[in-house]
């Protein structure tokens, strides 16, 4: 006797958001990336369409990172010396898009400047045809001054600019609006806070089909379950019809996993932790593949091996669509 499969018929659908602009649309990217459009929980092709597969972004820095695990530094080698070389290496490693995370200070120890940040962004745009996201160093004033300069210097490229947070979003949203870019809205693992920030951005007159939300997560072992459930609840709210949560989600398992002790430290740790390099990469892969199940649309990773494995998993998960 055939089993009748229960299907959820969701009234809502996730917005489609396109990153990057080709020459035809006023940019210089060789391709664009579209995420969103789901009318189902992830990868359930029997139930509803997931027209765009989740994508993998690789995080690079404008200056060689000082606090990154040596496992990562080894993997990228000399590429970390320049953002352009790093972007090329990331593209070769399989990145669908690049996330350029700007530093507080420059190589010479001086504070980052709008001119230096614009130069870094332009060098990445010249080095790769992939769509680009640019995140500020995370200090409100500095973020704003860098982002305004970058947004103006790259008008029409449809960059994803970050990071908007509830205490600092107006300047970035305004400059993204004026220069045809997108923004990412970050909130700390909470459904209501995420929704609230989307509403605030929407209230400025910014179109929601240019917003990606970053509900944040913890790394495996460091609170991933909070991020996991916040993401599931956000997506369910969107599918149930709540327009202010119907946004694709960007998540940063690379950043989270690589700041854990398990990834950073190879000596004086328990023998049961096993081989350092393999453990560190597994930490990132398991963090990322778990969040793939909780509806991530853009996964920002750091290690080339993780990029390969997560892309392979996405490929397999999309095979039924």
């Amino acid at each position: 006797m055939p089993v009748e499969i229960p299907k959820d018929n969701w009234p809502g659908v996730v917005r489609k958001v396109t990153l990057g602009a080709t020459a035809a649309d006023g940019g210089t990217r060789s391709k664009t990336i579209t995420v969103g459009g789901e009318k189902t929980l992830p990868f359930l092709a029997f139930e509803g369409p997931m027209p765009h597969r989740p994508v993998v972004a690789v995080e690079i820095k404008d200056t060689p990172p000082e606090d990154w695990s040596s496992v990562l530094l080894k993997a990228w080698g000399d590429a970390i010396q320049s953002p352009a070389a790093w972007a090329k290496a990331a593209e070769a490693a399989g990145a669908d898009l690049i996330v350029l995370a700007l530093s507080v200070t420059l190589k010479n120890g001086q504070p980052n400047t709008p001119a230096a940040a614009v130069e870094a962004v332009k060098s990445v745009l010249a080095a790769t045809g992939l769509p680009l996201a640019v995140f500020g160093p995370g200090q409100a004033e500095l973020d704003n001054s860098l982002m305004v300069a970058i947004a103006e210097a790259t008008k029409g490229e449809k960059l994803l600019l970050g990071v908007c947070e509830d205490k600092n979003y107006r300047t970035i949203v305004a400059t993204a609006m004026a220069n045809g870019h997108l923004v990412t809205a970050r909130t700390p693992m909470d459904v209501n806070l995420a929704k609230q920030l989307n509403i605030l951005i929407h209230d400025m007159g910014f179109p929601l089909d240019r917003v990606i939300m970053d509900p944040t997560t913890g790394a495996l072992g460091y609170g991933i379950e909070y991020g996991y459930s916040a993401m599931e609840r956000l997506r369910l709210a969107g599918l149930q019809g709540d327009a202010m949560t119907q946004l694709p989600m960007l998540i940063t398992p690379g950043f989270e996993a690589w700041k854990t002790k398990e990834s950073k430290v190879g000596e004086d740790v328990p023998a049961a932790w096993g081989d350092w390099e393999k453990r560190a990469i597994n930490w990132e892969i398991l963090t990322a593949s778990t969040l793939l199940q909780s509806c991530a649309d853009i996964l920002v990773l750091r290690h080339p091996e993780s990029v390969q494995q997560i892309k392979a998993a996405i490929e397999e998960l999309m095979s039924a669509a």
Binding site: L220, G221, I224, E225, W273, G274, D275, R279, N282, L286
Partner: peptide, 18 residues
Amino acid sequence: FSPDFVYPLLVLRQNIYT
């Protein structure tokens, strides 16, 4: 069996079932 994989996997199980 390899500790570098079983350790994170056991942690994941612990987290999801909290």
